[in-house]
Computed example of a mutant assay.
Amino acid sequence: MNPISALFARLQRRPLQLDDHQRQRLQALPPPPRLDAPLQEQRFVVLDLETTGLNVNRDIVISIGAVTIEAGAIDMAQQFECTLRRQVEVNEAVLIHGIAPSELANGEPPAEALLSFMEFAADSVMLAFHAPFDQRMLARALKNELGYRLEHPFLDVADLAPMLFPEVLTRRGGLDHWMNYFGIDIAQRHHASADALATAEIALILFNRARRMGIERVDKLAEQVRCWQRARQASLNSI
């Protein structure tokens, strides 16, 4: 970046509005986890974001829902749900999520909501369905609101499912597809906390299959996913 572009970027950047207590909390966040823990022992945070749209460079996060998996089970006592205070137009995306404009107007300040979520996530591995989207949206929100660089590892349940259950289909299916296949019934689809719970239930089934296949550790599962992704891409390229 040349000096003029760098100067313009600095001028465009909104100064962070954090108080002293928030800065202390930000400094106290733990580092991201190592990946060499057994699947049965690793704490996972299963995340779902509701956003104003699907453009990772323009749209914004309006709701965060998350549940935890610990000791191989969903811990219903550890859940996170928060609507962010936003001033947005009521578009189709907002209507699908069922979030009223009054909820957005009365939501948590974005910096406080995101800081609270990262305290909840702590040093967990994050899981999501179509994880690259949630990862990029969360990373941009954290950078803009907190000046925080997201380094937590993510695993994509949308890739884990067809990798571990190749007999079901040869391409990626949506969340509804896998919910139907595994017989999972969750109310309020397209609601962040409900989608996170559905994803967590699928993840437990996938972890059980992975262990039966001899994949016991998080890093080994992540390595298997990378190999599967490369093989899948090579197959698509050969068509």
Results as ranks from 00 to 15, higher is better:
residue 171 R to F: 06
residue 231 A to S: 05
residue 178 W to D: 03
residue 41 E to R: 00
residue 64 I to A: 01
residue 124 S to A: 15
residue 239 I to Y: 12
residue 48 D to V: 01
residue 151 E to K: 15
residue 157 V to W: 06
residue 24 Q to P: 10
residue 71 A to G: 13
residue 218 V to T: 08
residue 172 R to E: 00
residue 197 L to V: 00
residue 216 E to G: 06
residue 150 L to D: 11
residue 62 I to Y: 14
residue 145 E to V: 11
residue 216 E to D: 14
residue 87 Q to A: 14
residue 138 L to A: 03
residue 177 H to F: 05
residue 65 G to H: 14
residue 87 Q to W: 13
residue 96 I to G: 00
residue 138 L to K: 00
residue 44 F to Q: 08
residue 168 V to S: 14
residue 134 D to C: 02
residue 231 A to P: 02
residue 149 R to A: 15
residue 8 F to M: 09
residue 37 A to N: 03
residue 117 F to L: 03
residue 229 Q to I: 15
residue 137 M to G: 05
residue 45 V to A: 05
residue 122 A to Y: 00
residue 17 Q to V: 12
residue 30 P to V: 09
residue 136 R to P: 04
residue 135 Q to W: 05
residue 105 A to V: 07
residue 131 A to W: 01
residue 50 E to C: 14
residue 237 N to H: 13
residue 51 T to D: 12
residue 126 M to I: 15
residue 104 L to V: 03
residue 152 H to M: 13
residue 29 L to W: 06
residue 223 E to P: 10
residue 215 I to P: 01
residue 83 T to G: 09
residue 184 I to K: 00
residue 34 R to Y: 02
residue 78 Q to I: 10
residue 208 N to M: 02
residue 35 L to M: 09
residue 178 W to L: 03
residue 124 S to Y: 07
residue 223 E to V: 14
residue 192 A to I: 06
residue 194 A to D: 00
residue 205 I to M: 01
residue 56 V to L: 15
residue 69 I to D: 08
residue 116 S to V: 10
residue 23 R to E: 07
residue 120 F to D: 15
residue 52 T to H: 14
residue 15 P to Q: 10
residue 140 R to W: 09
residue 14 R to E: 01
residue 31 P to M: 07
residue 68 T to Y: 12
residue 61 V to A: 08
residue 103 E to P: 00
residue 215 I to M: 07
residue 166 P to E: 02
residue 43 R to W: 09
residue 14 R to K: 13
residue 159 D to C: 13
residue 108 E to I: 00
residue 140 R to P: 12
residue 235 S to K: 14
residue 140 R to L: 05
residue 131 A to G: 08
residue 29 L to T: 08
residue 51 T to E: 14
